[in-house]
Simulated assay, not measured.
Amino acid sequence: MTFSVIARDAATGDLGIAVSSCILAVGRAVPTVRPGVGVIAVQARSRRGLGTSLLAGLADGASPQDLVRRAAHAADDADRQIAVLDATGRVAADTGPGSLPTSGHVLGEGFSVQGNMLASPDVLPAMAQALGATGGALADRLIAALTAGQDAGGDLRGRQSAALQVVSGTPDTEDDDGVRVDLRVDDSGDPVAQLRMLRNLQRAYDERDYETLAVFAPEGARDLYAALAASRRGDRAAARSALEAVRARPGWSTWLTSMAGDSRLAGVSRLLE
Rank of each mutant, 00 (worst) to 15 (best):
V106C: 15
E219A: 14
S103N: 07
A93T: 04
D235N: 12
D77F: 05
L24K: 04
A75N: 08
R8G: 01
G220V: 11
L164F: 03
A229D: 05
W255D: 11
G110C: 05
S269A: 15
R270W: 09
L224Q: 04
A226G: 15
G57I: 11
A239E: 00
M1Q: 11
D140A: 15
A229W: 00
A239H: 00
N116I: 03
F216M: 11
R203L: 10
A227T: 00
S263M: 09
S99V: 10
S99Q: 05
S103E: 01
L67C: 08
A128Y: 05
S231G: 14
A10M: 12
D14Q: 14
V192S: 00
A59Q: 14
R80F: 04
A87Q: 09
G61T: 10
L183M: 15
E211A: 13
Q129Y: 10
R28L: 05
G261Y: 08
G251T: 10
G136P: 09
A7P: 03
A238F: 13
G261C: 08
R8C: 00
T102V: 10
D66F: 01
D122W: 11
L243S: 00
R184C: 02
R236Y: 12
V42I: 09
L15V: 08
A11V: 12
V192K: 00
A18M: 09
M127D: 09
L118R: 05
A41L: 05
A133E: 13
A204G: 11
S231E: 15
I6E: 04
L24H: 06
A87L: 03
D60N: 10
L142E: 12
A139G: 07
E219T: 09
T134R: 06
L100V: 13
S161C: 10
R47V: 08
L243G: 00
D94T: 08
D262P: 03
D151H: 13
S99L: 01
V33Y: 07
A41C: 12
R159V: 15
G57F: 05
S103A: 15
P31V: 00
G51D: 06
N200L: 10
L85S: 11
A260F: 03
G149T: 12
S103C: 14
A245E: 13
Q65G: 15
V68F: 06
S20H: 06
A248G: 14
V37M: 10
L183A: 05
R8A: 02
A133G: 09
L271N: 02
